[in-house]
Design a protein around this nucleic acid. Structure first.
Lengths: 201, 201
DNA sequence: GTCTATATTTGGATAGAC
DNA sequence: GTCTATCCAAATATAGAC
């Protein structure tokens, strides 16, 4: 009689190779641009022929999709590592800083996750799930500050998106816009946290 | 003896065709995405073979470059049409509104002009000239408001870039972020225009 | 000025041997 | 699981006829 081992060594090996391909894909797009990903180049990087990649991913599109999910999961992981005990406003600032750091440390990843720039690419519902969780974790932090209106939440995301976009497209690697963040968050809280101002709840 | 006519009808015709090709290129990328521009498709749109386009533009890159200059010239033209007599803060708001309208009315153009997303594309110095003028006109409007520091100017551009980016990538065609603009500009002026606050000059 | 013809390269993807 | 072989399509660009 045949027995079924508890560990599937084959499956583990496959998963490891998939991971390796994904990492190589990130390296490639970081070096050449998001749209410059090709199966040939990617194969070369992992020491395979392009055709062999199809044993791990059904298509190039599937690779972008895996990258989209991967990036969002990474961001979510970091958000979960934030201290829970900080006071509410400090926590919002930590979320903001986390987002900015995440954006500027890898502009191409930011482009894939938050800018709609790849013609024809649409993340699959499965890959989109962690992206929704990311969004929700930010909203929860704002709610804990008493900021509940859609407008006020949208203003916060716009502010951060603007800093990230300006920094990455005008001075990649620098801090010219990054260092404005605290000042702009002061300004934001002065306007949107004041309990008496209209439109905050 | 041969005489030289004052009008060069041939050159005029060529310029008109170049313009026609440029317009078709804009249509194409608006429909298919910035990176989806191909000489074949473009040729089809203007009723030519792809090869014939090379009589008007030396390369596909040259077409992107002409589009970059074209978009910036259009923005500059609109900025010059702004009323000169408005009070300084109103004028800054008009610049902001102009920018936002310009961004959302054609997200692909915004992508080409303000986001660095085309692998390998770098505008030529000539095409970059109008882009510099665009920037300078915004800075002049802020200066007229007493806003002179780099920080304060950068904060304003970040704020607008954020609204434009959020609107175009999360709700293209909508107004969810656009309608926050006035409120955020109020907030901005309250912080950066106050003569006594630090960092405004 | 536009065409046909063609060179050349590149890229996604499949079939089947080992 | 990776390879060779190959296909097919698409894309940029040049040469030369009309």
């Amino acid at each position: 009689m045949s027995v079924t081992p508890v560990r599937d060594r084959r499956a583990e090996r496959t998963a490891a190779t998939r991971r390796e391909i994904l990492d190589a894909a990130w390296e490639l797009v970081r070096a050449e641009g998001l749209a410059a990903l090709t199966m040939r180049d990617l194969g070369t990087r992992v020491g395979m022929r392009a055709q062999s990649l199809y044993g791990y991913y059904a298509s190039k599109h599937a690779i972008y999709d895996a990258m989209f999910a991967d990036g969002n999961r990474e961001l979510l992981r970091r958000k979960r590592d934030l201290p829970e005990s900080a006071d509410p406003e400090q926590l919002v600032r930590l979320h903001g800083r986390l987002f900015l750091d995440f954006a500027v440390e890898d502009p191409v990843r930011y482009q894939l996750l938050f800018q709609r720039t790849l013609p024809g690419f649409e993340p699959s519902p499965e890959s989109y799930t962690p992206a929704v969780e990311v969004l929700e974790s930010g909203r929860a932090a704002l709610r804990a500050c008493g900021i509940r209106s859609q407008r006020a939440m949208d203003a916060f995301t716009a502010l951060n998106a603007g800093l990230a976009a300006q920094q990455t497209s005008n001075e990649p690697g620098g801090t010219r816009w990054l260092r404005l963040a605290d000042e702009m968050w002061d300004m934001y809280f002065a306007r949107y946290r004041a309990p008496t101002s209209k439109g905050t709840r």
